[in-house]
Computed example of a mutant assay.
Amino acid sequence: MAAISEQKRNYMQLDHRDWVRWWNAVNDQEGRPDRNIDFHWADIFPIRTPMLLKAVLVEPKLVGPLFRACWESNLDMANDDILSKVISDAGYSGPEVLQQANEQKCKADLRARTAEAKEVGINGVPSYRVFRRKQAQGDGGWKQIGDIVWGQDLITDVEDYIAGWDGVTTAEAGARSISSKL
C-alpha cells in the first residue's frame, strides 16, 4: 500500500471496512452470523499468489480457507510451511496438495487460465463473466452477456445479467426501438 497516496489508501481502507460491514450484515440477515468476516490489510503485501492459485486448482474448496488465511488471519502465505498447515487445517493433506500444485500439469493449467483471462480482458479480482445459452440458434452454445464486470461494488450488475438483462442501457434500447420504426 506504500505505492499509493495517503488519501487513496485512507479511502480504500474505508471502502473495505464498509464492504466488511455490508457482507457481515448480509450474513446476519441470512441467518449465518457465524460467517463473520474480519478483513484487514495484510502485513505482507502484495501477496504472492501463484502457489495459492495452483492449490485451488488442485482443490477448489480451498478458496475460502486460503482467503481467510490471507485477509483475516494475516498469515504469510508465501511460506510453504504455513500454506501447508492452512490446507491441512482445512481438512486436506497439505503436503499432497502442494506436491500436486507443483506438478507440470497444474502449472500448465494455471498458465492457460492466465492467458485466457488476459485474452478476454479480465483485469483483477473479482471479475465476472455471465454466459447464456444461445437457444435461438438451437446449437446449445454459450454467449457472454454484457461486458466483464470487475469489482464487488458492481455485483448487482452480475445479478441483473443473470436475471435476464442483456447489458443494453435504457438509452440504447430506446434508440434501437426508434431506429427500427423509421
Rank of each mutant, 00 (worst) to 15 (best):
D76K: 07
Y161V: 01
T49L: 13
D28G: 07
G164Q: 03
V26L: 15
W19H: 01
S180V: 07
W23Y: 15
K8I: 13
I4E: 14
E172K: 09
D153N: 15
R176T: 09
S127Q: 08
D109E: 15
M1F: 10
K85Y: 09
P60Y: 08
V149Q: 02
D28P: 02
A25D: 12
H40Q: 15
D153V: 05
V86P: 01
S84A: 15
R113H: 10
E6F: 08
T156A: 09
L53T: 00
V158C: 10
A108T: 15
Q137A: 14
A42D: 03
W19K: 01
P65G: 09
D34K: 11
R32L: 13
D43R: 12
Q100P: 01
T114M: 10
I37P: 00
W142A: 13
D89E: 15
M12A: 12
I162G: 08
S88T: 11
D153L: 09
L75E: 00
A101W: 01
S127V: 05
E72D: 06
F131V: 05
S73P: 00
Q13T: 06
N27D: 11
D81S: 14
R35F: 12
D166A: 09
D38R: 03
G94I: 04
W41E: 09
L62W: 01
T156E: 04
K118D: 05
E172P: 02
C70F: 03
A25E: 11
A112C: 07
I155N: 09
G91P: 03
F67M: 03
L66T: 00
V149N: 01
G151T: 08
R133A: 15
A101R: 02
P50F: 13
P46E: 04
E116C: 03
R133N: 12
